[in-house]
């Protein structure tokens, strides 16, 4: 996250509107994508986007700069999104999932090679909706790490700062998330392999 290199923290802390607008311009696309991927709902993502910058505006005078501006904004947005996920009535995940246990348990079950499918198979609306559905099945803990680390491109250290967890927990959760997503996508793409008849 290097967008804040050009921003003046002193100006932001003193309430400079132009500088605040520059910060919004620099970070709003990333914060919106983060919320959209975590919540899977455009309206809720927009609400989180607005709340994040409203909160930031109210708190900037107290921002001490111990983490980077980007990490701080990601933390506000992630907390907002996690609160919303936890409020949803019917959880699709187990709240007791031992997400930080380095023992990953069972070996992956689905072992069909679907990498051989032609590229257009991965671009269909149905395939893209499978990518979304797979993320929505992740628990909030795994979804947060996957979104920050994989989709937002934060480093392991930055992700651990945003979530307040250890770097080893970030690594474990990321691998768990990747394996679960792969398992979900394999169920779909293995069928496509059978239907279109591609085999390596």
């Amino acid at each position: 996250m290097s967008e804040n290199d050009q921003l003046s923290l002193d100006a932001l802390r003193s309430g400079d509107r132009d500088e605040f607008a520059r910060m919004v311009e620099a970070y709003s696309p990333r914060i919106y994508r983060l919320a959209l991927r975590m919540l899977g709902d455009a309206q809720e993502a927009e609400d989180v986007l607005q709340e994040t910058f409203l909160n930031a505006f109210r708190s900037l005078s107290r921002f001490e700069g111990r983490s980077s501006l980007g990490t701080w904004l990601h933390r506000i947005a992630t907390n907002q999104a996690l609160m919303r996920l936890r409020k949803r009535e019917v959880p699709t995940f187990s709240v007791d999932e031992p997400v930080d246990d380095p023992d990953l348990g069972e070996l992956p079950r689905q072992l069909v090679d679907w990498c051989c499918l032609p590229e257009e198979e991965f671009m269909t609306a149905e395939a893209q909706s499978q990518l979304d559905a797979a993320v929505e099945k992740l628990s909030p803990a795994l979804r947060a790490v996957f979104t920050l680390r994989e989709l937002q491109g934060l480093s392991t250290r930055e992700t651990s700062e945003v979530l307040g967890i250890s770097e080893s927990a970030v690594k474990t959760r990321l691998l768990r998330a990747r394996l679960q997503l792969r398992e979900h996508l394999t169920a779909y793409f293995a069928e496509r392999v059978q239907e279109v008849g591609y085999e390596r």
Binding site: D113, W114, C115, L131, E150, L151, R178, L181, R182, L185
Partner: peptide, 14 residues
């Protein structure tokens, strides 16, 4: 197969 499909999964999202 596991490694290839895991790599492809990551690429598709990125």
């Amino acid at each position: 197969v596991l490694v290839d499909t895991l790599r492809k999964t990551i690429i598709l999202y990125r």
